[in-house]
Design a protein around this nucleic acid. Structure first.
Length: 478
DNA sequence: TTTTGAGTTGTTCGA
DNA sequence: GTCGAACAACTCAAA
C-alpha cells in the first residue's frame, strides 16, 4: 500500500535545494508541490507589476527544476485555504508543509489556514526557509526587540548560524495521479503591453541563475565590495535581492558560500564580513516588520505623524517618471522603470530627494518602489524608506540630507550612468552633466541641450529645499 | 537604577 | 585642497 502524499505549498521559497519544507515532505513519502496565486490575500501589499513579472519566470524555472526530478508543480488560482483543502482531500494527503513568511497580512492568513487544515485532520508543519534567525529568536537582555542594527547583528553573530544548508534532489516521488494544474500563462502575471523588454536583457530568473550569480559575485566582486558596492555606474553589488526575495536562494546558502570563499583569505575578511552584514540588514528588516507590523504605513517614530508632507501629485509624477531636472535622480528613476532595479546608493539618493527635497511622504515613494522593483520586499522596502525619511528604527538623523550633485560626482564619477539613462544629456561633461542648470548657454547649445525643452528645468533648488526640509523637521521636533 | 558608550550609508563651514 | 567640527540632542543596549 502506497504512502499518502504530502503537499508542499511553495511561496517565497521557489527552489529545490535547502528548501526545508520540501526536505521534510520528501522524507515522508510522495510529494505534491503546489503554488496558489491569491494576490488579494496579501492586500494592500499584493505583488506589484515588476514582482509579478519575476514571479512568472521564477515559477517557470521551478517547473523545470521539478520536472528534472520527475515531479511537477501544481498551479492554482483562487483562495489559498479552499485550494489546499480541496487538494488535500482529492489527494488524500497526509500533511501540508510550507516555509514561513513574515508579512503581517500573510501571518494572519497562514495562522488561519493552519488551524483550518488541522481541524480537517491534516497534519501541518511550517519551517524557516528564508532567514538566518527568525524574529522571535533574537531579543535584547530585557527581551525587547532590537531597534538598532549593530547590537542586533552582533547578537545574531554570537548566537551562531546553522551553516549546513540542505542539499537538492535528483528524484522526487509523486502521487499515483497528479491533480489538474492551471497553465502558468493563465495566471496573467506578465504585462499585456511590452514594458518588460529590458527586463529580459537584465535578468536570469530562477534558482540555477541565482546560484550562478552568487558564485560569480564571490569570485569577481567580493574583493573590494565594501567600497565598490556604493558605485552607481559599475556593478559592484551582488544583485541577489530578487533571488533572495523569492527564495530562489536561501540566506543560509549565501552565508555558507561566502564563509567558504573567505576561508583562509585574509584580504577578503573585511569585504566578506561587510557583505554578510548586508544580509544582516535583510534580517533586521524582517525582524522589525514582525515586531512593528504597522510600520508599512505609519512612521515608527510617532512624532513624524505630524510632519508637514506635501501632497503635490505633479511633483510625485515628475519624480516617478524621471523628470525632476536632477540628472542622477532622473537616470536612476528611469533605470528602475526600465529594468526593475536600481543600485542601493541610487535608491538612497532618489529616496532622500523625494522625502527631503520634494517633501513628499515616504509612503508614496514606498508604493512606487513596491510596484516597480523586481526585488520589492515589504520588510526591506519599509526599513529603507523609513530610514531615509528619518522616522524609522535606527534611522538617518534628519539633518542628513543627500546632495544629488555631490552624490553623483562621488558615485558616478565619469557620468556613465547618467549618460546611459538620460541620453539627452550625453554630450555634456561633468560637472555640467551633474548640474546642467549651472552650465553656460554655449555649452548647453553645443551639447544639444535646451533646458525646459529637451530636458526639464530642476523642480527645486537643492540648497533652498534643504533649508525648507530642516525647517519642516524643526516643526515636529520635541 | 543609573551610568556609559555608541550609533550604515552626509553636508557644510571655517580654519 | 584637506580636515575636523557642527549639525542636535536622542535613544538604545548593556554594564
Amino acid at each position: 500500500m502506497p504512502t499518502r502524499p504530502t503537499i508542499v505549498w511553495f511561496r517565497h521559497d521557489l527552489r529545490i535545494a535547502d528548501q526545508p519544507a520540501l526536505i521534510a515532505a520528501a522524507a515522508r513519502g510522495p510529494v505534491v508541490p503546489v503554488f496558489v496565486w491569491a494576490p488579494e490575500e496579501e492586500q494592500p501589499w499584493a505583488p506589484g507589476a515588476a514582482s509579478r513579472w519575476w514571479l512568472h519566470h521564477s515559477l517557470a524555472s521551478l517547473q523545470r527544476q521539478l520536472a528534472e526530478c520527475g515531479s511537477q508543480l501544481v498551479i492554482r488560482a483562487g483562495e489559498s485555504l479552499a485550494t489546499l483543502l480541496q487538494l488535500a482531500e482529492q489527494l488524500d494527503a497526509e500533511a501540508v508543509m510550507w516555509c514561513r513568511r513574515y508579512e503581517p497580512a500573510v501571518i494572519r492568513r497562514d495562522k488561519q489556514i493552519k488551524s483550518e487544515l488541522a481541524a480537517a485532520g491534516v497534519h501541518v508543519e511550517s519551517f524557516n526557509g528564508s532567514l538566518l534567525h527568525e524574529p522571535w529568536t533574537i531579543s535584547t537582555q530585557k527581551e525587547d526587540p532590537y531597534t538598532v542594527f549593530t547590537p542586533f547583528w552582533k547578537r545574531c553573530l554570537a548566537s551562531g548560524v546553522d551553516h549546513t544548508p540542505g542539499k537538492g534532489f535528483r528524484k522526487l516521488a509523486g502521487p499515483e495521479t497528479w491533480p489538474a494544474s492551471t497553465p502558468l500563462e493563465e495566471l496573467g502575471l506578465l504585462p499585456t503591453i511590452p514594458w518588460d523588454r529590458q527586463f529580459y536583457e537584465t535578468w536570469d530568473v530562477g534558482a540555477p541563475a541565482a546560484e550562478q550569480r552568487l558564485r560569480t559575485f564571490l569570485k569577481d566582486r567580493l574583493q573590494d565590495y565594501k567600497e565598490q558596492r556604493n558605485r552607481i555606474d559599475v556593478e559592484g553589488y551582488s544583485k541577489l535581492s530578487p533571488h533572495l526575495h523569492f527564495g530562489e536562494i536561501s540566506p543560509r546558502q549565501v552565508w555558507q558560500a561566502t564563509r567558504a570563499a573567505m576561508d583562509g583569505k585574509k584580504h577578503l575578511q573585511r569585504d566578506g564580513e561587510h557583505f554578510l552584514s548586508e544580509v544582516g540588514w535583510r534580517e533586521f528588516a524582517h525582524h522589525l516588520l514582525y515586531h512593528f507590523p504597522h510600520t508599512t504605513d505609519k512612521p515608527l517614530r510617532e512624532r513624524f505623524e505630524e510632519f508637514p508632507w506635501s501632497s503635490s501629485q505633479t511633483l510625485l509624477r515628475a519624480w516617478q517618471r524621471g523628470q525632476t531636472g536632477y540628472p542622477i535622480v532622473d537616470a536612476a528613476m528611469r533605470d528602475l522603470w526600465a529594468t526593475g532595479f536600481m543600485p542601493n546608493r541610487a535608491r538612497m539618493v532618489v529616496a532622500s530627494f523625494l522625502a527631503k527635497d520634494l517633501l513628499l511622504p515616504w509612503q508614496a515613494g514606498a508604493k512606487w518602489f513596491w510596484d516597480t522593483l523586481v526585488d520589492a520586499d515589504l520588510a526591506s522596502n519599509t526599513l529603507g524608506w523609513q530610514w531615509t525619511a528619518g522616522c524609522g528604527a535606527d534611522a538617518a538623523p534628519y539633518f542628513r540630507i543627500f546632495n544629488p550633485t555631490s552624490q553623483a560626482s562621488k558615485f558616478d564619477p565619469h557620468g556613465d550612468y547618467i549618460r546611459r539613462w538620460a541620453p539627452e544629456l550625453a554630450e555634456l561633461e561633468p560637472p555640467d552633466l551633474y548640474e546642467p542648470w549651472n552650465a553656460d548657454e554655449q555649452t548647453l547649445a553645443a551639447a544639444g541641450v535646451a533646458l525646459g525643452e529637451t530636458y526639464p528645468r530642476r523642480l527645486v533648488d537643492h540648497g533652498e529645499a534643504r533649508d525648507a526640509a530642516l525647517a519642516a523637521y524643526a516643526e515636529i521636533k520635541g
